[in-house]
Simulated assay, not measured.
Amino acid sequence: MASTLPTLRLILASNSPRRRQLLTDLGLHYEVRLQEVDESFPPTLRRAEVAEYLAAHKAEAYRAGLAPDEVVLTADTIVCLDDDVLNKPADEAEAIAMLTRLQGRTHDVYTGVCLLTGTGHRVVFSDQTRVYFRSLTPAEIEFYVRQYQPLDKAGAYGAQDWIGMVAVTKLEGSYFNVMGLPVHRVWTELEKLGLARLS
């Protein structure tokens, strides 16, 4: 595999503007490639297992279309309150309900990542961040949901949004993991593939 390392091309299989920005900020060159993938998971899975399962499941959907010199990066972020997985809300009402449950509590954010090369080499990992939310008023929650429409975000919030500035009092772990990509882990794995280099 060493002979192919310098020529690998990175494919980001994500529509998330936050993941795109994080890879760009790392100085990585990549192509975005998208396709619809079912995001359901077995109910027996818990916490990090869910994030890793979904990331790997997404990557498998791209396997057949990968060239030998390509590596696809897929990721999935979930919010866990106790053992309940809070995925993307279906509508404003569900977003308000999720944030009402999260306010005044501590929850965990897991992001699973899969790197799959066109030659079949696969790495799956996840990272965990504990997030502390202060108590919020119903008016604050409704303002955030109506103004920011966080329906594309696990747990119905983005740490980089207004609510992250006013509600998150402490983080234990990577802030970027909460944004959707544990970039410190991603960089390390891409280094092994020859894709992350100082220029």
Rank of each mutant, 00 (worst) to 15 (best):
M1Q: 12
A2V: 15
S3W: 12
S3L: 13
T4M: 11
L5C: 08
L8H: 05
R9P: 10
R9D: 08
L12S: 05
N15L: 15
R18P: 08
R19Q: 06
R20G: 03
Q21P: 04
L23K: 00
L26Q: 10
L26D: 05
G27Q: 06
V32W: 11
Q35P: 15
Q35W: 14
S40E: 12
F41Q: 03
T44N: 13
L45A: 03
L45G: 04
L45C: 04
L45W: 05
R47G: 15
R47D: 15
A48M: 08
V50S: 01
A51D: 12
A51P: 15
A51V: 09
E52G: 03
L54E: 01
H57M: 02
H57N: 05
A59W: 01
E60I: 11
A61C: 05
A61W: 00
A61K: 02
Y62K: 00
G65R: 05
G65D: 10
L66S: 06
A67T: 10
P68E: 02
P68T: 02
E70S: 01
E70R: 03
V71K: 09
V72M: 04
V72Q: 07
V72D: 06
V72C: 04
L73P: 12
L73Q: 12
L73W: 11
T77S: 04
T77A: 02
C80R: 04
D82C: 09
D83S: 05
D84V: 15
L86I: 05
N87C: 10
K88W: 08
P89W: 09
A90P: 15
E92I: 03
A93N: 07
A95C: 13
M98S: 07
L102W: 04
Q103G: 11
Q103E: 07
R105M: 08
R105H: 08
T106C: 09
H107R: 03
H107N: 07
Y110L: 09
Y110C: 13
T111N: 06
T117K: 03
T117G: 10
G118C: 10
G120E: 10
G120F: 10
V123H: 12
V123D: 15
T129F: 01
T129R: 02
Y132Q: 11
F133G: 12
S135M: 08
S135Q: 12
L136E: 05
A139W: 09
E140V: 10
E142D: 14
E142W: 03
Y144G: 05
V145M: 08
Q149C: 14
P150K: 00
P150E: 01
K153W: 00
K153Y: 00
A154F: 00
G155A: 05
G155L: 01
G155Q: 02
Y157F: 02
Y157M: 00
A159V: 14
Q160W: 01
Q160A: 15
D161N: 01
D161F: 01
W162K: 00
W162G: 02
M165Y: 14
A167S: 13
L171S: 04
Y175W: 09
Y175S: 04
Y175M: 06
F176E: 14
N177C: 06
N177P: 05
V178F: 09
G180L: 01
L181G: 07
P182V: 11
H184T: 12
R185V: 06
V186N: 09
W187C: 14
L190V: 07
K192H: 13
G194M: 06
G194A: 12
L195A: 13
L195H: 13
R197H: 11
R197G: 07
R197W: 11
L198C: 11
L198Q: 12
S199Q: 14
S199A: 15
S199T: 13
